[in-house]
Design a protein around this nucleic acid. Structure first.
Lengths: 322, 322
DNA sequence: AAAGCTCTTGCACATATGTGCAAAACTTGC
DNA sequence: GCAAGTTTTGCACATATGTGCAAGAGCTTT
C-alpha cells in the first residue's frame, strides 16, 4: 500500500524533526530512538524540510529593514524585499538568488484556499525550482496569460511550470491554453466567450494573489516574449515606436505605466491592468539591471504591492527616479 | 555605542541566516562572503536561532495527528499536543521534553499585543528554560497568582520566572506581589481594592492567552503548593476531605471540575475559573502520571483549550475516562 | 594614556552530518 | 511464485559544523 508507506515516512519524519529541531537531539540519538540508522535520519530530516513539514522562517525586525526597502515603501508604496547580491555575480546567479528568496516569500504569502494567479516567464521558472513544499489546503492556481506561439502550443512549457508550482503548493491548476498574443483580436473575443475559457478568466478576476515577473525592454534575448516567435518584426517596431518598456503577463506598458494606444494589447491574452489591480496582493519578482525601466513602468502602473528585487536593480530604480 | 554593535550583529546574523537557510550556502562560503571566519558564522547562526531571528516550525498535517490527539479533540474539545516519550525516561526528563515542546507551541501562539496570563509553578519554570527568543511587539505578561508564603515573599522566584518568560517574549511584566494563599479572606478583599493590585487584576481579566501548569494531587512533593509552607496541616486535611485533586493557579478543584464549597479558595490569590475561562486561549502544560486526576479535573472544569501533555499521561487520562 | 575589564575572533580539534555505492527489501508484472 | 525493476537501507568516507582556548579588539576607569 503506497499511501500507507508514505504516511509512515511522514510520521517518522515528523518525529525526527521534533527531536532534532525542538529537543536538539543529535541524529545519532534519534536513530537509536527510532531504531533506524543515522543516515536514514539524515534523509528523513531532508525529507521533512523539502516537503514543508519543517518550515524555517526568517524574521526581519523592522529596524533591520534596509534603507532601500524603506525608500521603496515611501516612494512607491510597495513592500520591497531587497535581496543582497555580493560582489560580482553573473546575471543568471543574481536571478537564482532573487528567485530563491522569492520562493520563500511566496510560500509564506499563500494561504489556505487562496486563488493564485501566475504569469509564466523565465523569472517564474526560476522561482519554481526553489519553492519548498507545503501542505496548504484548497489552493487554486490560475494561469494568467497564454503561452502558445507560432512554433509551439506552449502547453509543455506552462504545464511544467504551473505543474511544478502547483505541486509544491498542493494546488489545483487552471490552465489557459491560448496563444500569448493573438493574431486577430476577434479570435480572442470569440474564445473569451467559450465557457471553458470564461471560467478561467473568472478565476483570474477573483484571484487574491497575483505573482509575476516582468518582460524587460525590447530586444532583450532573455525575455521569451521577444524572441520566441510570439511577435512579428512589425510588432516589435510598433512597440518601439510607442515607447514600450516592458510587459506584465503579455500586456505592454510605457515608462509612465500607461497602456492606452498600444494596439498589441488588444491582441494580448493577459489580463488588463484593471483586472490585475483587483487582486489585493500582487507580488512582482524581478532581477537584473536590464529590467530597470520595466520595473519603473510597472511601479508607475501600480501593478505591484510586494516586490522581490535584487539590490543593484533596486538601487538603479531609486536612482533613476530622482 | 552598544546599540549600534548589536544591530550590526543582527544584520550580519540575518544575512548569514538568509544565505544558510535560504540559499543553502555552507558556512565556509558565508564566511568568505561576509569576510569573517567560519566559526563566527557558526556563532552568528546560533545567535540567529536563539534570538528568534530564525524560527523553525514543524507543521503536522492533520492526517498525521495521532489517534490520541483526535480523541482529546472529540472527548474534551481541546487541541492536544501529545509529546511522545520514548521507553523508560525519568519523570524529570519527561517534564523537560514536554516543557520544550510547550515552549515552542507557546511562542507560536503569542501574537503581537497579546496579554498573556501566567501561573507560576515548577512546570512553567521548566518551560521558561526552553523558550526561544522572539521579537514580538507590545506583549504584556501578567502574573495570575501570588507566590508569597510563610517563609518567603516569592518575589525572587516569580521575578526570575516571569522575567525569563518576559525577556524571551520581549514583554512587559505585571507582577502580583501577594501571598499565594491568604490567611484571612478579608485581607485579600482589602488588597484587591488597592489600585495597584486592581490594575493587575484588570489585566488578568483582559488576558487573551492564559498559560498554566496544574498542581497535582495532595501530598505530591513536586508541587510547590503542598510543600512550600503555603498550606497548614489543617488546610491539607480540608482539601483531602473535600476530594480535591489538584489546583490551577492556586485554585483547588475536584475530579468533576467543581470548586464550590472548598473554603480555601476564598483565600486564594488566583483568579476564579470564570475569569480564567474568559481568556479565549488557555494553554495547559502537564506532564507525569501523578497528574492524572489533576488533568481530568481541569478538563472537566473546562479550563483548557490547548493542552501540551506527555503521551503516557495522555493515555492514562483517556483510559480513566472510559 | 595606561591598566583592567568584557566581549569577540580565529585556530585547531572533536563531532556531527551528507552522500555514493552496493546490498537488501519490497513491488510489480507475468 | 519467480524474476525484473524500483525503492530503501546501512556502510564508509569526505565534508561540514560546534566549541574550548588563547589572543585581540573595544570600552571604561583611574
Amino acid at each position: 500500500m503506497a499511501a500507507g508507506r508514505k504516511s509512515v515516512k511522514m510520521r517518522e519524519a515528523l518525529a525526527a524533526a521534533h527531536l532534532y529541531y525542538r529537543q536538539d537531539f543529535t541524529m545519532e540519538a534519534i536513530a537509536s530512538e527510532l531504531g533506524v540508522s543515522r543516515s536514514s535520519v539524515s534523509r528523513l530530516l531532508s525529507y521533512a524540510r523539502e516537503s514543508g513539514l519543517v518550515e524555517i522562517r526568517i524574521h526581519s525586525p523592522q529596524e533591520a529593514r534596509s534603507r532601500v526597502e524603506q525608500r521603496f515603501a515611501e516612494r512607491f508604496g510597495v513592500a520591497a524585499h531587497v535581496v543582497p547580491v555580493p560582489g560580482k555575480l553573473s546575471e543568471a546567479e543574481q536571478l537564482e538568488r532573487t528567485a530563491q528568496a522569492a520562493a520563500h516569500i511566496i510560500t509564506a504569502m499563500v494561504k489556505p484556499r487562496s486563488i493564485v494567479g501566475l504569469a509564466w516567464g523565465s523569472t517564474m521558472a526560476a522561482v519554481t525550482k526553489h519553492l519548498p513544499g507545503t501542505t496548504k489546503q484548497g489552493v487554486q492556481l490560475v494561469q494568467m496569460n497564454g503561452a502558445a506561439n507560432v512554433y509551439s502550443t506552449g502547453l509543455q512549457y506552462t504545464t511544467e511550470l504551473l505543474g511544478g508550482f502547483a505541486e509544491r503548493l498542493s494546488a489545483e491548476v487552471f490552465q489557459l491554453a491560448v496563444p500569448a498574443i493573438f493574431d486577430d483580436p476577434a479570435t480572442r473575443e470569440a474564445l473569451w466567450r467559450e465557457r471553458s475559457i470564461a471560467r478561467v478568466l473568472d478565476m483570474q478576476a477573483a484571484a487574491n494573489l497575483f505573482i509575476f515577473g516582468l518582460g524587460s525592454r525590447i530586444g532583450d534575448p532573455r525575455s521569451h516574449i521577444y524572441s520566441g516567435g510570439y511577435l512579428g518584426a512589425d510588432d516589435l517596431g510598433q512597440l518601439a515606436g510607442e515607447g514600450v518598456v516592458g510587459d506584465c503577463a503579455s500586456r505592454f506598458y510605457r515608462l509612465d505605466g500607461t497602456t492606452a494606444g498600444i494596439p498589441i494589447n488588444d491582441r494580448s491574452s493577459g489580463p488588463s491592468f484593471d483586472i490585475v489591480r483587483r487582486a489585493p496582493q500582487r507580488i512582482c519578482v524581478v532581477s537584473g539591471a536590464t529590467k530597470r525601466d520595466s520595473l519603473r513602468g510597472a511601479l508607475a502602473a501600480g501593478l505591484i504591492t510586494d516586490l522581490v528585487v535584487d539590490e543593484p536593480l533596486a538601487r538603479l530604480v531609486l536612482a533613476a527616479g530622482e
